[in-house]
Design a binder for these strands. Sequence first.
DNA 1: GCATCTTATGACACCGATGTCATGACACCG
DNA 2: CGGTGTCATGACATCGGTGTCATAAGATGC
Lengths: 343, 343
Amino acid sequence: MSRVLNGDAPVNARTREAVEAAMATLHYVPSSAARSMRSNKTGLIGMITGAISASPNQDEPVGLPEIFLVQGVQRALADAGLTLLIADTGGHSEKVGELAHTLLRHRVEGLIYVADYHREVQLPAALRGTPVVLTNCFDSVGTPAVLPDDEGGQDALVQRIVAAGHRRIGFLTLPDRQAARPLRLLGYQHALAAAGVAYDPDLVLTGAIVDPVHEYDFLWDALDRLLRASPTAICCANDKMALRVCALLRQRGLRVPEDISVAGYDDYRIITEHMDPPLTSIELPYAAMGMRAAEKLLRLINGAGKANEDARELVSGPVVWRNSVKTIQQVVTPFKTRRNDIS
Amino acid sequence: MSRVLNGDAPVNARTREAVEAAMATLHYVPSSAARSMRSNKTGLIGMITGAISASPNQDEPVGLPEIFLVQGVQRALADAGLTLLIADTGGHSEKVGELAHTLLRHRVEGLIYVADYHREVQLPAALRGTPVVLTNCFDSVGTPAVLPDDEGGQDALVQRIVAAGHRRIGFLTLPDRQAARPLRLLGYQHALAAAGVAYDPDLVLTGAIVDPVHEYDFLWDALDRLLRASPTAICCANDKMALRVCALLRQRGLRVPEDISVAGYDDYRIITEHMDPPLTSIELPYAAMGMRAAEKLLRLINGAGKANEDARELVSGPVVWRNSVKTIQQVVTPFKTRRNDIS
DNA sequence: GCATCTTATGACACCGATGTCATGACACCG
DNA sequence: CGGTGTCATGACATCGGTGTCATAAGATGC
């Protein structure tokens, strides 16, 4: 009887006991299908992801961001008593429409759309009318989105490296066309400007291309050119690149961080913590983004703060300082400066 | 009309067109809740995972295995037209019962239970009556399970290293109590026996403990003792350990693979491919396990081959040979042996 | 031309939980 | 003792598809 389950009407104690006993012996489990048909509330939130690539040659850590996103989303949804229905494209983006349809058939109350890296996407038209929050991506029609703060992140990292005494900071960027690339570059430039360091274009080079075959050679050439600009530190577009750069530097007889400092991006801890030396990086806060996305979606569904929920939301992660960046003995300290003046 | 949707009865062409037009203009999406109530088929498969640890101090690559498992499961289910409902414990194993209940409310037709590493588990009693396949874990009551072939994997890897000419092969094992540890040891011993190499207990040491604080020191001490047994190659329990071992060896002035060879386990490609040198490892085939688990579950549900489906199923992955293991010039070739006999 | 069969479609009960209404039991008050 | 209110519970329509049965229209055979 629904009355004893939901407690929405007074029930005699003896009756309640009898009903509960019957439910126990029959291993009764209420059907959410029947409940949702009547109440029009399924308690389901859908998630469409293309993050898991089906490409067998893919050596990127794709999927890992997503797992933390899922974790964050799940945590926020569990608090609200909702269940997550995950539909994965398996790398085939043309399946998105079909997957969306499946989720709609299950009457999800809202939907979180996740991309494998920061980029622009286009939602299928079928999702009109369903609350959607984009995560790690954005579209051209202003769908609410949760994004990593690439500009602020790179800014914070470079500021910290500047604070460690570095002035000539190389920057090996993401491949062309990646949405994060210009944002990171802005952050890099802003950090330098804030410290009064002149921007030197020779210190900024594209460090990766999408083509996995020539990836190695490309990075080798980029590093080669970068070293001619004699940086004391190198910012890499991600931890994987940093791992390779360290190996390449070692092959040239350069020690990290004694001869040159290296920093990554993402704080992919399996790399950063176990490298030798451990890698300075900045966290890409996927779990936090997942939580923020879920919370945003819940606000959308509940109709609260409609006006504000159209905005894109940026999420920042902390700089994680490790030994791969050396703190430079400042050549010009206030004290020394004075002595120099005297002499 | 259900007839035009499902085609289970003859429909006049004109009527069909009219209905389809109406469905299109109204953006009609059938409700799987209503359908499933009548037909008792939800098209949902549940998945309970504890792999995503909520522990913030966790530096293991937990979650990554799971993402590939999910991928494999999803791929197999999509082919069967089923949808995956994921319930995550968020690291709190006490939530399993509650999550199972949620899945049962949604009337999942079967369930895949995933552990974060190879180990024994106990299913909540509520799941009696639901087809279940354990993945990466097993229980004491013979629930169908899909497991990594730890014994065969270590065997294959060591055999390959023996084939490269190594005879003194160190083995830094998993922590005590891990189910895979004794299996891997059996594989190691079997490979040696097959090659006629005597087993030397001094070459086998526990390489890791669960305590993350003393993990580093523990590995240092283990490696220190292992090196006194003068191995020419070291098998590590996983790629992360191999990464650290390489760093420790380098600190001692030993070059990999020139002075000593190193192999990992898992083929965690973000590590193995980007290390310097790239790491020889053996793949832990999580995606394949996911597919196998899903297929096994489908057979269970369809009632086919009931007799056989109780068995545990082992899944193997290939040895991935990279430069971290050196091929040794065989000191004792058949030819040389003969010459020695003559002299 | 009438019986029979096929084809197309309307009508309706049903799945399980829930909200509403009606009914019945009982206490309390004047 | 009858009227009124509260409490406990049975009865029933409802949600949206689906399977079954009934009905009607048209085709075919003798």
